[in-house]
């Protein structure tokens, strides 16, 4: 079990099912539970962004999520068949702004970029694809780190 995929409509009611998808991947892969929260958060942010801003009015998109475990880390990709949009093109919020000036929106993508080691956007055919990777540092028992 190194890779799992699921496809859901762009409906906020799908959020609990997506969180369960991450949690099931985590327990099946026997990964540290605390790290699951990073991926749950990233998935919520990216999914909700597509739900709220990605679909032309009155339409639903298909959103495909995959999780893949490799030797170097964990990669999650979120793909949708909506109009071309690169969420990484959004300007980051000004985190030095005062309480009154701090923007209310735009935190989600910023958080994802902060929490992940690599985030990439690609337009693949008719789909937007956002790929997020968190590297895992592992020390094997018989080879201690220098």
């Amino acid at each position: 079990m190194n890779e799992r995929r699921t496809t859901v409509p762009s409906d906020p009611a799908q959020l609990p099912a997506l969180m369960q998808f991450v949690q099931e991947f985590w327990s099946a892969a026997d990964l540290p539970p605390a790290q699951a929260l990073t991926f749950e958060l990233a998935l919520e942010e990216v999914f909700m962004n597509v739900v709220m801003h990605g679909a032309p009015a009155g339409t639903a998109l298909r959103i495909e999520v995959s999780l893949r475990l490799t030797d170097s880390g964990l990669t999650m990709s979120v793909e949708d068949d909506g109009p071309e949009f690169n969420p990484l093109s959004l300007p980051p919020p000004d985190i030095s702004a005062s309480l009154g000036e701090r923007a209310v929106g735009g935190q989600g993508v910023f958080l994802v970029r902060q929490m992940m080691d690599a985030v990439n956007y690609q337009r693949v055919g008719v789909r937007n694809q956002l790929t997020m990777t968190k590297y895992i540092i592992r020390f094997s028992g018989d080879r201690l780190p220098a």
């Binding site: 909700m48 209310v104 989600g108």
Partner: peptide, 14 residues
């Protein structure tokens, strides 16, 4: 509180 996303941060800010 185990988890907060940007939707929750927004509530705290407001």
């Amino acid at each position: 509180l185990d988890y907060v996303s940007s939707a929750g941060l927004r509530v705290f800010l407001l």
